[in-house]
Each structure stands twice: as C-alpha cells, then as structure tokens.
Design a protein around this nucleic acid. Structure first.
Length: 400
RNA sequence: GGGUAGAUGGCGGAGUGGACAAUCGCAUCAGACUGUAAAUCUGACGCCUUCGGGCUACGGGGGUUCAAAUCCCUCUCUACCCA
C-alpha cells in the first residue's frame, strides 16, 4: 500500500527522482508539500495547488489538538473527509511548536536565525521534560500537555497518510549541551512514537535533530536510521554559533544523508526557498514543505526567476508585465503587475490569493523542472541556471 | 453684511506658555520571515551632519515673554449658522 521507489539517480550528484506510493495516490519526488496547517492553504485553494502540481499537503497536529478540533475531524472520519479531499495528506507532529511557541517565541527567533536576540517577548512558559511538553494554548492560554503518545494518538485520529514522530525542535540560541540533551530526548520519544503507533493505513517518519552540530547530526541520523520508520524527517535549526545557516545546512546534509538507508524517503522539514531546494535535492532530499510561498504572498512578496520582489512598491503600479515573464501560471498569463500591485496595496484579499497561487505554482513548477532535469541527467545544469535566485529582495525594477 | 469655530509635517489628527522637530493613525520607503499564534513584525520618515550636534518649522505679518504651535493684535483663507 505504501512504498517508495527510486526511479532514477543522478550520476553527477546525489539527486534522485522517485515515487512515493500511498493508498490515496502517488507523490512524485523530489516533491514540494504545500503547508495547510489548519486545513487551509491561507490565501489559495487546494484545486489550484493540485493543478500546479501538488501531490500532497501538510497539516498540523498541534493546532487541531489545542482547540480539541481533532475530535470533530475524527467524527467526520479524518482529515480527508473533513476537508473534502482525496489527495494524500501528511501531518506534522507538533514538534515544531515546541520551538515556535517555546524558545522561538520567547526570543523572537526563527529556525534559521543567527545567534542574536531579535526581540524578547513575554515568555510562554513552555516547559519540556522527559515525558513531554507543557504548553500554553495559543488559543486561550490553557495549559496543555503533549507527549509522544498524545501526538501519535491525535495523528491517528486525524488520519493523514503520512505522520511524523514527535520531536523537540531546538532553537539556534540553545547551547551545545542543551541541544545534545534535547536530541537524546527526541530519540527516546522516537522509540515511544513507534511503540504507540498502530500503523493502520498510515506510515510514520522519524525525525533527525542535532541543531547546527555535525557530530550530533551524525549521531541522530544513525539512531533514527536504526529504527523502523517509513522515512526520515530532517528537522530543527541549522544556524547558531556555526555561522551561515544555509551553508551549514548544506554541510550537515552532505554528512548525514549518506548515513541514511538509501531506499527510504527523506523529508527536509520546513525548508523551501528556491536556492535551498536546489542545494538539498543535489544532496539527496526527496520532500520539502514550507510556508514561505504562501506567507510571502500574504506579505506581498513574489517569487520570480530572478529572486523575489515586493509587489507593494508604488512604482509597480505602472507595470503591464506579468509577475514573472517566464511563468506559465494562470495568474501570470492573465494579470499584470499593475493590477496585482494595486490589489495588494489596497489590502484586497484577492491580491493575496493571486500571489499565493503564483508563488505556489512557482515552487511546484520548479520541482517539476527539477524532476525533469534529473530524468534528463541535467540537474546540475538546471541548478546553475536557477541559482541566480537571490536571497535579498530585488531592487532593480528596470525590467518591470 | 453679522455670528461662531478653525488653519499643525504627504494626508487625517493630538498638543493649547518651557520636557516639541512636535503623541498617534494612514500613506511612503527599507528590512525580516524557511515542519505558520504571521493578510504579520521591525525600522526610517522637515533639512544638513565629521552622528556630538546644527538649521528651518505648527496659515502670513507684528507683538508680549528669559522662553510661543500654545497668549495678544492684525491680515488671509476654510467650515457652519443667521440675514
């Protein structure tokens, strides 16, 4: 019922194309998994995402757990029936929220942040111990406890096809000692997740942690590799005292992916900027998920071949060009920048919707190109062409 | 013609003798965002600067005062009301 088959390996890199089989359909890898945390793509719809090439969506256990809504979902017969969709779904375990609502919240840092405190916010008083994590619900402040067993139980009731083990995602600000301790805990939780999982119509991915430290990452890869998971999630932050987090992530992937069983799928959790996708595919990653395409759309940031561009710039109101001249999405074929820019400036929800559709298409179509390139043995060539993707927002608008 | 209320930075709108280059909102500009508490957050926003500070400003002009966006006189303009 479930399976993963590598269809072709690139000769010049560790890139590979494959097919992940689930009872609800196939996932062509390398794949980008659009994130619909609470059951919605925030700005666009599942149909357009599927038309753009999405094979599977990701939702989150934590949010359905906090408000108790997983019980309602369960009464519908699971997420698929609840949202009225047949496509495969994966659920994250809630492990990321250990970080994003814990130390990430307290110190205002993102998962790839460098070692600097951006903005100290009021602590959420998240506490972590061997048993699990005690959270304050972001919905009403209520104290909640999440353990590996809870996460698995809730994920079974949500009924996604692929689920993730409950892990502790650490912060770039955490010390080596703490990250090592958390990694050990993640490993013990992984074993508990396997024990708690009944494996009925679902498969589970184990999560590798270890923060920015190579030796911890290697240890974690070896341990998670030794457990009977369906595949691997690579989680956590890669930044910190090691400096450039993108470069460090690549280094970690270089060193840890060869330690993993080749035949199992590898999912790089939460990564999805274009340059990161190319670097990771080259190293052997099969799946990505990321909120960036859809979040940037809400923030007016468009993903284009040359990089990214803020569409709320006043000067773009004059432009009769599409968002990206080389893009084949419905939005680019039909609407010009002037209009989309106007909608975004006016805070019209339709502007967000159009941009979300474009950004999602952009990433999904890039995955299509990547798969095609690997098939043709031209992955590195494509990477060269596409790595002019800039990290900083573009300032030159001449071509618009 | 008479009366009343006003005129503050791109706009709206605080301030009504010193702590005012002037709260705040909008707009503008810049930055951030990678398993989503995010259609969010941060910063800049009179001019000049060797970043210490300097200069010009609250409709125009005049005055009172050590000190005026704030008080007085006058002019101009705006809104509403009465003829």
């Amino acid at each position: 019922m479930f399976g993963f088959k590598i269809d072709k390996k690139d000769k010049l890199s560790s890139a590979r194309i494959g097919t992940l089989t689930t009872p609800r359909g196939l996932i062509r890898t390398p794949a980008f998994v659009p994130v619909a945390t609470k059951g919605a793509l925030k700005g666009t719809d599942f149909d357009s995402a599927v038309l753009s090439g999405a094979d599977i969506f990701m939702m989150n256990t934590f949010h359905f757990f906090c408000n108790g809504r997983y019980k309602d979902v369960s009464r519908f017969g699971g997420l698929h029936k609840f949202i009225g969709r047949e496509e495969p779904i994966m659920t994250d375990s809630g492990g990321f929220q250990v970080f994003s609502l814990g130390s990430g919240w307290d110190y205002g840092v993102g998962k790839l942040a460098e070692s600097k405190v951006v903005n100290k916010k009021k602590s959420r008083n998240t506490s972590i111990n061997e048993e699990g994590v005690i959270f304050r619900s972001p919905y009403n402040g209520e104290k909640l406890k999440m353990t590996p067993e809870t996460s698995i139980k809730v994920q079974e009731r949500l009924g996604a096809d692929i689920i993730f083990a409950f892990d502790e995602c650490t912060s770039p600000l955490d010390s080596y000692d703490y990250i090592e301790e958390a990694m050990g805990r993640t490993h013990r939780w992984a074993s508990r997740c396997i024990k708690a999982f009944n494996g009925n119509n679902q498969v589970m991915m184990g999560i590798i942690q270890g923060g920015p430290y190579l030796e911890l990452r290697e240890k974690s890869a070896e341990f998670i590799n030794s457990l009977p998971f369906f595949g691997f999630g690579i989680g956590g932050s890669f930044g910190g005292s090691y400096g450039d987090s993108k470069a460090n992530m690549n280094l970690i992937l270089d060193r840890t992916l060869p330690l993993l069983l080749d035949s199992k799928p590898r999912h790089l959790l939460g990564i999805g900027e274009i340059d990161d996708i190319f670097e990771s595919v080259e190293r052997g990653i099969d799946l990505f998920d990321c909120v960036i395409p859809v979040r940037w759309a809400r923030h007016g940031m468009a993903m284009i071949r040359k990089g990214r561009i803020n569409l709320k710039l006043t000067k773009l109101l004059k432009s009769k060009n599409p968002i990206d001249e080389n893009c084949n999405c419905r939005v680019c074929k039909k609407y010009h920048l002037g209009y989309i820019s106007h909608l975004l400036k006016e805070k019209e929800i339709y502007g967000i919707s159009l941009l979300a559709e474009h950004n999602l298409f952009f990433v999904l179509d890039t995955m299509r190109e990547i798969r095609e390139a690997i098939k043709q043995g031209e992955f590195l060539k494509l990477k060269e062409e596409r790595l002019n993707w800039r990290v900083k927002p573009l300032n030159i608008i001449d071509s618009f």
